[in-house]
Nucleic acid binder design. Structure first.
Lengths: 152, 152
DNA sequence: TAAATTTACATCGCGCACGATTTAATCTTT
DNA sequence: AAAGATTAAATCGTGCGCGATGTAAATTTA
């Protein structure tokens, strides 16, 4: 079988396991996020807001690699659930500033056990601690590379 | 700042870079797949079919970690584009057998340059070959772990 | 063999993702 | 300051993903 053909096999692809692992990871968060009444992408937005409780849509997008076409509806849903408020900046009317409500701030306390839960799953697994660090670094490196590649 | 709080930072998460890298990777395939008139998930299904040109929906799902709620509409779209046909098994009327049309088989030739394109991007990047192998192995390991965790 | 269970796929509803376009505000240029 | 370009969000349409449920066929159990 030709080299080109061999590389068309699912097994030999880098991108498929990335795609599958990402989806299964999101699924893993499901039961942890359900009690908080948020989805995984909503959780990511909240992670950003828990670090910086007032931030523009643009900046959230820069952190999560998402744009307004995805964020606007998602943020509206978070606003409906009273976790955030959105308002136009007075300095620049184009900009929408997203900020946490007190309810949104409180949610952080409930969310604090989530990283621990996830961490426990990994420590119970066949992953060595050092291996995990390498893996995480490689993921970041890949992300950097992809970012460059897509911007160009 | 508390340990729990520190782990809520985006930077320290394993899952976010996984999520972001997966999305950006899909985006990277976009320009390569557009000429073939298929999406990335459709490409994955075709990868399976190019390995085994007759296969049930169930088996495709097992390979890609997808279920009929995702696959059925996707396969219908591939059928509309005349790349595949779907028919009920005569042995077991519950089972739907998916098979390539000649057009779907021909598409494989056009797709053969895709892995090369992707490979080139990596070889131009800061990724060492050995590093890449390690990374790929870790991804598979993660996928195995997630699979186990979700089944349980 | 009739009833209960399991299996394979389909359907439904909702929430992302994202390319493409629109709208309104701001900035730049002349 | 008016015209043109840029920017930030919003909107629109399409295609996933997936939990929950439905349907019909096959298998198991009673």
């Amino acid at each position: 079988m030709s080299q080109a053909c061999e590389q068309l096999k699912l097994e030999n692809q880098l991108c498929f396991p990335l795609y599958a692992a990402s989806r299964l990871t999101t699924k893993l968060y499901g039961p942890l996020l359900k009690p908080l009444d948020i989805t995984y992408p909503q959780y990511l937005v909240l992670l950003v807001l828990w670090e910086q409780k007032e931030i523009s849509v643009k900046e959230i997008g820069a952190r999560l690699f998402l744009e307004s076409n995805t964020l606007t509806p998602l943020l509206k849903r978070l606003e409906q659930k009273k976790f955030i408020v959105r308002m136009r900046s007075t300095q620049d009317e184009r900009t929408v500033i997203v900020s946490l409500t007190s309810r949104g701030e409180k949610l952080k306390d409930e969310a604090e056990t989530i990283p621990l839960h996830i961490h426990n799953l990994f420590s119970q697994s066949a992953f060595e601690k050092s291996e995990l660090v390498t893996f995480q670094n490689n993921l970041k490196k890949l992300l950097d590379m992809l970012r460059q590649e897509i911007d160009s």
